[in-house]
């Protein structure tokens, strides 16, 4: 089961400069653990010590903010695209 994770510039030091990496997992949590096994240190940037998403990190499952789905427990399916972005201002 392959899921594409899109990595922002600021976190590409963990992916050898790759913009997108492939991973597996039935939830976002599992995907992060799987990605961390090959890109060590990435997960610690995405989730805080309490296990929830870090404050200035936004994660989108097929363009929808996962905080309104199930947070790190959001279920994933084959072919999903997970986009990770730092929180920025608009206005």
């Amino acid at each position: 089961m392959a899921i594409e994770a899109r990595i922002p510039t600021i976190l590409r030091t963990y992916t050898g400069g790759e913009k997108a990496v492939s991973g597996q997992g039935s939830t976002l949590q599992e995907l992060f653990v799987d990605l961390d096994s090959r890109h060590s240190g990435l997960r610690a940037r995405l989730v805080g010590e309490d296990g929830s998403l870090a404050r200035f990190v936004n994660v989108y499952l097929n363009d929808e903010d996962v905080r309104f789905l199930g947070g790190v427990e959001t279920p994933l399916a084959d072919g999903d695209v997970v986009t990770i972005l730092p929180a920025v201002a608009g206005g």
């Binding site: 600021i10 200035f56 990190v57 730092p86 920025v88």
Partner: peptide, 14 residues
């Protein structure tokens, strides 16, 4: 990508 070109994640903004 340029717009998300922060120097570190702590510069994020909500």
């Amino acid at each position: 990508e340029l717009v998300y070109g922060l120097r570190n994640l702590d510069e994020g903004f909500v």
